[in-house]
Amino acid sequence: MYDRLLFPTDGSDVASDALEYALDVAATHDATLHVLNVADTTVDSVTNVRGEVVDALEEEGERIVAAVAERASDRNVSVVAEVLQGRPHETIVDYARTSGVDLVVMPTHGRSGIKRYLLGSVTERVVNTSNVPVLTVTPDDDARLTYPPRDVLVPTDGSPGADRAVAEAIALAKETSATLHLLHVMETASLGPDVRSAVKGGELEERGNEILHAAADRARDASVDDVATALASGRAYREILSYVRENDVDVVALGTHGETEFSRYVLGGVSAKLIRTSPVPVLLARQLESDGTNETP
């Protein structure tokens, strides 16, 4: 499933913490780990040393990727190390595309306090623009980082973006023999109590069950036997987090470009909140803009 992983790193503590998880993913799938440090050319990093012009960021980058390569070698994980110049998010996305990467693993740069709710700008931009799925890891003290996963959750609203996430979650559950959890949340929180009661037993519930049944059929057709479905009502991100905690979910898969009236799971809304607050890694699969399908690149 994953033959080439990309782990962009700036050498920070949060990147170092997320590396262990990336190594777990690579070891599980016998994948090559591409380690990339981007020397940000928007920063004036050129200094004169003994009459020679030296790019300090590139020099530091070489030290960073060498340290990661050593840790990967200790885990018997194959490594390709690169230091490139450019704008970080653009360079990461371009490298993933041109190197045939199957998955990008990145930290969210959130820990505790207010920083927990600030999604790293580079990670956010990569998620927004990468056609390659991005697995975000919050290296927090209370984070639960388990790989291979035993339980994979995919919230789905039936949109093309969510459908791609369903496909990614199905493939991951099959590859790791995990239980696949399918969840549909009816967004009724903004409605009055009388209206909520009416719609819960009516059109929204019927549509939600249709979406869940279709996704479950896809999973079973792909030979995923252990499938659980659940229908909930309320605020999507709260219901998703509640389900994660109550069912010991290890990975949440989300689509980031929903297009229909049921499109609740889009970055900037539910996805962004989950990336910032989820106690488990979040796998984001962006709907391809070239043709609007959910075909995996």
Results as ranks from 00 to 15, higher is better:
G51T: 12
A66G: 00
V137I: 15
D141F: 06
P149I: 05
L119Y: 03
E210C: 02
T256K: 02
E82L: 15
A171H: 10
T277E: 09
K115H: 14
E203K: 07
A173C: 12
A253H: 03
V77T: 03
R164G: 06
G258L: 08
A39E: 15
V251F: 04
V154K: 09
E62L: 06
R111H: 14
R71L: 13
R71V: 06
E187D: 15
D140Y: 08
P193G: 12
T229F: 05
E205G: 15
D194G: 08
E205A: 11
V199D: 04
L23V: 15
M186I: 12
K273W: 07
P193W: 11
L84T: 14
A162L: 05
A230W: 03
M1F: 04
H29W: 15
L153M: 08
E60H: 03
V14G: 05
G100W: 01
H89I: 05
G258Y: 03
G208H: 00
H29K: 14
A96M: 06
G234V: 06
V65R: 04
I211F: 09
E20G: 13
L284E: 15
V266N: 04
Q287A: 14
L135D: 08
R71K: 14
T179D: 00
R207H: 11
G51H: 01
H181D: 09
K273S: 10
H29A: 15
V132F: 04
V46W: 14
E175V: 13
L103M: 09
A222N: 09
G269D: 15
M1Q: 11
V154G: 03
E70G: 01
E124A: 14
A232I: 01
D291C: 10
